[in-house]
Computed example of a mutant assay.
Amino acid sequence: MSTIRIAAAALTIAAALALTGCGATPATPAPTAPASAVADGPNETPAETEAPVVEAAPAPAPAPVAGDVITAEVAETLPEGVRAYPMADGTLVTVVDGQPLPAQVEAEIEAPLAAVVAHEPADKTGPNPAAAAAAAEARSAVARLGRTAVVVYPSFGVYGWRYQAFVSERQRLLDEPSSDRAVTMAAAEAYVAGQANPAAWVIIDVTAG
């Protein structure tokens, strides 16, 4: 009888211990994300950003050159020291301070005086008012370009062709006209070279050569 009770008690204790051991086993914790992953958030690829577009600065305009043919619009934007000379055909030609007078401009200024000289009467023995007026107009045209002119032209008289250089109607470089054109041209060139700013002077030469 006692043996049966002891055995039963042993089985009861064993069952209790089995039940206690099962209840004491800790549950496996759920996996957690690393701290760095939590701090940084989802591992997403950052969106690509377009580089800012930097527009290149416009190239500076080339320096004006004497003799350029320009439009009326460009003429309105010319810098100081540059002028637009209106030619007889309607075109505009640049004249730049410190640069030689463009050949086409000089030729156009000389043309009226050259025409008068070419038609000078062979029997004329006194001054030619038409030539003097044309020379004055040539000096005025040069003055409008910011320069001063020495005008050299011939006149025909009792001694044939004579050459004189005029700074103005009354200021002549030779006491008497020379029969040698080279002498008159040398006087004009020497006079211009002796000025404070020779580049601001122009020799208008309509001699017959």
Rank of each mutant, 00 (worst) to 15 (best):
K124N: 13
A61D: 15
P60M: 06
E55Y: 11
A88C: 01
P102A: 05
V95K: 00
P129V: 04
A72Q: 15
P127W: 09
T91G: 11
G157C: 06
E110I: 07
P58M: 02
A141P: 00
K124H: 08
A136Y: 05
V105Q: 08
A115I: 03
D123L: 09
V54I: 15
G146I: 06
F166M: 09
L145R: 00
A66P: 03
D97I: 03
R172T: 13
G90P: 03
V69T: 15
L78H: 11
V69P: 00
Y163T: 00
A111V: 05
Y153S: 00
A61T: 14
Y85E: 08
R170V: 13
A136H: 12
P121D: 08
A130R: 10
P58D: 09
E73F: 11
P79G: 07
V65T: 15
V65M: 12
E106T: 10
A61K: 11
R83F: 03
L92E: 11
T91P: 03
V95S: 02
T71W: 12
E137W: 00
M87K: 15
E137G: 12
G67P: 00
E106R: 10
G146R: 01
A66N: 10
I70M: 12
A135H: 06
Y163A: 07
A63G: 10
V95G: 01
A138S: 13
Q164V: 09
R139L: 01
T77C: 01
A138K: 04
L78R: 07
A57K: 14
A84I: 04
Y163D: 04
P154R: 04
E110H: 01
P64I: 12
Q99D: 13
V167Y: 10
Y159T: 14
A149F: 00
D89M: 08
A72P: 07
P60V: 09
I109G: 05
A115G: 07
A61Y: 00
A122R: 12
L92T: 12
G81E: 10
A114S: 11
R83Y: 09
V65A: 15
A136D: 15
A72C: 06
R162W: 11
E110K: 12
V65W: 02
A107Q: 13
V117I: 14
L113H: 06
Y159M: 14
P129H: 01
Y163C: 03
A115H: 08
A122L: 13
E108T: 02
E120I: 05
A131G: 10
A57H: 05
A61H: 05
V117G: 06
P86K: 11
V116T: 03
G90N: 04
P129R: 12
L78Q: 04
V158L: 14
V65R: 12
P52N: 12
A103H: 09
G157L: 04
